[in-house]
Simulated assay, not measured.
Amino acid sequence: MCSAFSENDINTTLLVTASKDSKKNFSNLKNKIWNFYGVKNRFSIEWLNFIYPNIRFKHFFHGLFVTFYLRRNNYSIIYTRSEWVAIFSSILIKKKTILELHNFKNTLSQKIIIRLSLSNAFISLVCISNALKNELIKYGFNKNILVAHDAVDLDLFNVNVDANQIKKKYDLNMTKPIITHIGSIRKGRGFNTIINAAKDMKEFLFVFVCGHSADIEIINKQKDKKLSNVKFIDFLANAEIPSILKISDALLMTYSSNLDTLRFTSPLKMFEYMASGKPLISSDYPVLREILNEKNSLLIESSNSTVLQNAIIKIIDDKEFSNSISIQALKDVKNYTWSNRAKKIIKFMQISN
């Protein structure tokens, strides 16, 4: 978002809070970070040394710490994902504060934000789905809420890819159709459903691109089972994701009902999948249908490996159908670029309050 704001002529500074050791690691990467994330429009980055205390209200103290820093500096608008930063900034600094919310659990901080919406002229809300907006209204949020789904940088996908070269780079089978899942394989992502499908589909190669610390134990356990048609690729830089997607034959988004953010989600990878020009197979949930439909994806019952197997076979065998949903997805995703999202939010900031 910082890059997109900068592209739209907003003088943007990203505030990062972490320990001194993290700052040292960042300093070693600072000349590479733009390429790592595929960022074109550079912006300022300010590093604030803050060690999260190992106590219950650590986010409360983080919010205070950041707010006191903001108070000493002359920022016109504060845009944050931190609920406590939004609360303290709107009360103590009294400058326009935009909170971007991705989930709602009716926590203490969220209850305070709802109360502030009744009386505080400085706080406004951006959320990532209509489902989340409706939930906030139900709980009493009494101001305009902007829905801005997540997005994608289409320029990252505007590249020609040598499939054989990419397959060699990541040691992938040269002849089998490639079925790819990008992102964490933790609870609620349908990992076991994919693995169960893979066991009976030896003619396909199932590729997982993941590497979050919480995924490592799952990966190691699965490697011990030695499924020859399952391949794990470690965490990749954002700029490298398009090449993997573009050599795939089908892309999987197999969320299940036990994903804690499922009711309100707007997955980044959904937009990346759509931008790749490859067919997307997705679990069928109402919040995902805010973007997906039968014309731009293959929507299926979740947590059912047999249904998933049949969906993969349909994608591979029915080229006319696969091409049709891929082309439509590519058309639809043009409405969901980071630049367009930034324009929408900037307009909202200008008219809110």
Score class of each variant (00 low, 15 high):
M1G: 12
C2S: 15
S3F: 09
A4N: 06
S6T: 15
I10P: 06
I10L: 14
T13I: 13
V16P: 07
D21K: 15
S22D: 14
F26N: 06
N28Q: 13
L29R: 13
N41C: 13
S44I: 10
L48Y: 08
N54E: 10
R56F: 13
F57W: 15
G63R: 05
V66P: 02
T67K: 05
R71F: 11
R72L: 14
N74I: 05
E83A: 07
E83T: 11
S89L: 08
I93S: 08
K94C: 14
K96L: 07
H102A: 14
H102P: 03
K111E: 08
I113P: 06
S119H: 12
S119C: 14
N120I: 11
A121Y: 04
L125M: 14
K133V: 04
E135H: 10
Y139S: 09
I145S: 06
I145G: 03
V152G: 01
V159L: 07
V159G: 03
V159Q: 11
V161N: 00
A163D: 03
I166Q: 00
K169S: 01
Y170V: 00
T175Q: 15
K176S: 10
I178R: 00
R186I: 09
K199Q: 05
M201D: 03
K202V: 06
F206P: 00
S213G: 10
Q222T: 15
Q222V: 14
Q222Y: 15
K223Q: 11
D224T: 08
L227M: 12
K231A: 03
F235G: 08
A237H: 05
A239D: 09
A239S: 15
L245M: 12
I247E: 00
S248I: 01
L251A: 09
M253C: 10
R263N: 14
F264Y: 15
F264N: 07
P267D: 14
K269A: 00
A275Q: 05
P279S: 12
Y285Q: 09
L298K: 02
L308W: 08
Q309H: 04
I316T: 05
D317K: 15
S326T: 01
I327L: 13
Q328V: 09
L330T: 01
K331G: 03
D332W: 11
N335I: 04
A342R: 03
S352G: 04
